[in-house]
Every structure is written in structure tokens, then in C-alpha cells.
């Protein structure tokens, strides 16, 4: 079976700083795959590179069998990959509905109308607040908006960068439940998280990143009980 996303020997630098040093991983259709690791391990850099925001120094990124290296970010979306960025980055001065509309920028109005109903079904709170300016939403609601916005492009692969960041534990649970639901509904998910416990508990497979390289990989369940992982990332 060929992977939906296939990353091979990826190197990314910011000037003289090497952020990612030769990582390779695969994501198969229908999976939840998570990249865990400490701050600065290269998780977000990897996502941003896959999404086309950063050009890699070397290595290949293939999505659905064709290379996306050098494809600008605004064209990557139309190919079926959406990144819900770290820190949510909703358009705070635009309404909830307008934010969602931006998410469907590459799609036709008719398609967006249909997708919007699905997004509202996943996030009923967004429907209630559709006229509200996004900057006035709570952190959890903004995270839902950022995820809903990414879903508006009908991605086959949804990349989530630290969706639980800065949220109260009860909201973290809610967000992860929604991630699971989205996956059950057929969206493949690449999840980057510092909350390793949560991430591993919903992931089919996981990769552990350390200073730009992959240290370990396995199923979510395996890594949850792995001694090294427990010590380094799960606080025990």
C-alpha cells in the first residue's frame, strides 16, 4: 500500500540553524499519526515544510504520489492538505463565518455551502457564534474555528499543530474527541503535540522527534508504555 504522505530524508534550516536533520515518515490513508517531542525538536518546522510555507534544504515530500516540494503553500491547499497552524491564527477581525469562508477559498461557493453545514455539525458552537468577530471568541472556540476553517478546504490530510496549546484540560479533551471524530469520518490526520499523553492515546502511530531527528517510532499504544518516552515526555 502506498502512503498518502511520504516524507524522505527531509532537511530544513533557518539560516545557519538546522531545525530538521533528515527525517522520514509515512502516513497512510485513514490514520492518525502524531509527532511528539520537546520544544525545538522540529515538529512545527516539519508541518510548515509539508504545507509549503518553508522550502526544505533537501529531501522529498510526496502527497498522493506527487511531489509537493517547491509548491507554494497557497497551491498545496488545493491538492488536499490543510494545516491548522500553531497558535490558531484565526483572522481575529473577521467574523466566524468569514473565517470559515476563507478556509474554503480554493473551493466553489456551492461546495462551501455544503461543507459549512458539515463543519457546523462538528462544531455547533461555531454556528451559534457565526456572526461574532473571531477575536472575541474564547481560546477553545478559536481552536475550534481554526480546525473548522482548515476543514473547509475538504482536506484528505489535516495537519494540526499543537491544538491543545493553552487550553483548559476539559477543552483539551473536547478537542481530542473532535479530532477522533474527524478521523472516524474519513480524514487522515497528522498531529503535532506537546501533550504527548493525549496525542499517543488517540494516535494509530507515532514518531518521537528529538533535535531534528526521529528517535523512535511505533504505535500509539506501544509508545505510551515505552520507558524512554514515559520518562522524557509523560512525566513518569
Amino acid at each position: 500500500m502506498s502512503a498518502l504522505l511520504s516524507v524522505r530524508d527531509l532537511h530544513v534550516s533557518y539560516g545557519a540553524i538546522k531545525a530538521v536533520r533528515g527525517i522520514s515518515f509515512d502516513i497512510n490513508e485513514g490514520e492518525i499519526v502524531t509527532l511528539i517531542g520537546a520544544n525545538g525538536a522540529g515538529k512545527s518546522t516539519t508541518l510548515n515544510t509539508v504545507a509549503g510555507l518553508i522550502r526544505p534544504e533537501s529531501g522529498t515530500v510526496e502527497f498522493d504520489g506527487s511531489s509537493v516540494v517547491g509548491v507554494p503553500a497557497h497551491k498545496v491547499v488545493a491538492r488536499g492538505m490543510a494545516l491548522c497552524p500553531e497558535g490558531r491564527r484565526v483572522f481575529t477581525q473577521m467574523s466566524v463565518a468569514e473565517n470559515l469562508e476563507m478556509g474554503g477559498y480554493t473551493r466553489s461557493d456551492a461546495e462551501n455551502k455544503e461543507t459549512l453545514e458539515k463543519v457546523y455539525a462538528h462544531f455547533p458552537r461555531l454556528k451559534e457564534r457565526r456572526g461574532q468577530v473571531a477575536g472575541t471568541l474564547s481560546g477553545g472556540e478559536q481552536q475550534m474555528l481554526a480546525m473548522g476553517r482548515a476543514l473547509m478546504s475538504k482536506p484528505r490530510l489535516l495537519m494540526l499543530d499543537e491544538p491543545s496549546m493553552g487550553l483548559a484540560p476539559i477543552l483539551v479533551q473536547e478537542i481530542f474527541d473532535i479530532v477522533k471524530q474527524l478521523n472516524d469520518a474519513g480524514t487522515t490526520i497528522l498531529l503535532v503535540e506537546q501533550n504527548a499523553n493525549m496525542a499517543l492515546s488517540i494516535a494509530d502511530r507515532a514518531y518521537v522527534l528529538e533535535i531534528g531527528t526521529i528517535k523512535k517510532s511505533g504505535t500509539g499504544a506501544e509508545l505510551l508504555v515505552d520507558d524512554d518516552v514515559r520518562k522524557a515526555y509523560l512525566g513518569g
Partner: peptide, 24 residues
Amino acid sequence: TKLGKAMRAVSEDMGAARLMGVNV
């Protein structure tokens, strides 16, 4: 308009606008 909304999105956050598929 769609273009106007893209303008507002770019003005607020170019990176996020790019992720939406906007040619900044």
C-alpha cells in the same frame, strides 16, 4: 467580495492567508 476578504486576511496574517490558498 472574495478578493476583499482575501485582502483583509492578508493584512491580518499573511502566513495564515497563504494556508487558506490565497496568493498573497
